[in-house]
Design a protein around this nucleic acid. Sequence first.
DNA 1: CCCTTATTGATAGTTTTTTTCAATAAGAAG
DNA 2: CTTCTTATTGAAAAAAACTATCAATAAGGG
Lengths: 139, 139
Amino acid sequence: MSAWEELLAQAGHRVTEPRRLVMQLLLASETPLSPQTLFESARVQHHNLGLVTIYRTLELFESLGLVCRVHLKDGCHGYLAVSPGHHHFVICERCGGSVEFPGGDDLRALIADIEARTGYRIEEHLLQLLGLCPNCQGK
Amino acid sequence: MSAWEELLAQAGHRVTEPRRLVMQLLLASETPLSPQTLFESARVQHHNLGLVTIYRTLELFESLGLVCRVHLKDGCHGYLAVSPGHHHFVICERCGGSVEFPGGDDLRALIADIEARTGYRIEEHLLQLLGLCPNCQGK
DNA sequence: CCCTTATTGATAGTTTTTTTCAATAAGAAG
DNA sequence: CTTCTTATTGAAAAAAACTATCAATAAGGG
């Protein structure tokens, strides 16, 4: 039983075929996947899968912190599997590939600075970088 | 003629009533506004305004960097006026109020670090913080 | 292996966004 | 100030994205 399956079960949710498929696809993908894409891919294996289930599954996964909704350049939503504790991605504008990176001291310093300046108490952050991956540079 | 109007004109676009209204509303608002909200508010003054125009206007403004699409906690889109050069916001999770902050040295350091680590060439970033504004803390 | 109940898929509905096209109005030119 | 060109608009309709409802199914505890 993989880590996320245990997490699911421990939270009182069932490990089902559709959920397994969605997670498999997300874990295997470098690029963020849209609900629609997930639907089409998963459907290949689970013939009578409903799109609704994808939405529900993503919502559940997100609420458990297994998955992260990211924002593509055109404003559409995509989902990426998240390794525990890290929630930041660099996304390649050309090929869509993504790499997760840890929010290190720089980010902590930045947040502390902003709390001091604005008086806001910061509880969550969304940091996403867009650029070109090594492969797509110079092409 | 305000700054953004000049920018519009210089880019070869016309300064029209709907565009003036949308920008006015965005400039006057502390909180991100959705296309729908903008539509309803602007309609009060411009009686036969079409929702389509809002979408087109926001798209145009965004392409000119006058406006920034931000992502609310529930995943919906909102738009905020952007002062030139700055593109970061802290948004209050309780009242929706927002404050823009400059991406300072910390952020530059962070980005340089990530470029070194991942090999990506970073061209754009989206940093958004969620928290509680001074007013809403402790309530 | 059975039973309870979370989960699913089909259907239908709502909301959001895009497309198309004739009518309108901004702003350059006279 | 008036005329002309053409970007922009609004209405209507369509497509896409997402949500709600509910009977049928299947996960997993007993």
